[in-house]
Amino acid sequence: MKITENEVKKVAKLAKLTLSDPDIERMATDMDAMLAYVATLASLDTDGIVPTAHAVPMANAFRTDQLRPSLERDAVMAAAPKSAGGTFRVPKVIE
C-alpha cells in the first residue's frame, strides 16, 4: 500500500505538526516503509484473541475524594512561555 502526500498532510493536521514540502516527501517514504513492515501482522491469525491494552491485570485504581494541596501556582507559571496574573496567556480564540 502506498501512502500519498495528501494522506501525510491530513495526518500532520491531526497531529498538529507543520511540515515543509521536503518533510512531507520524506515522511511519506518513511511511513510507507513502516506500514509495509507492520503489514506482516495481517498474516497472523488473531480470531477470538482478546486484545491486551495493559500487561498487568488490574481494575481501576481509585483514591478517596479528598482535598489536598496541589503544586504551587507560581512554580507552575514560572515554566509557562507566557503568563499574566497567574494564568496562561494564549492567542485570541473567539472573535
Binding site: L41, A42, L44, T46, I49, P51, T52, A53
Partner: peptide, 15 residues
C-alpha cells in the same frame, strides 16, 4: 482495527 487493535491482539499472543 487494522493496526492498533490488531497489534493489541498480537500483543496477547506474544505475552
Amino acid at each position: 482495527d487494522a493496526y492498533y487493535l490488531k497489534a493489541q491482539k498480537a500483543r496477547t499472543l506474544i505475552r
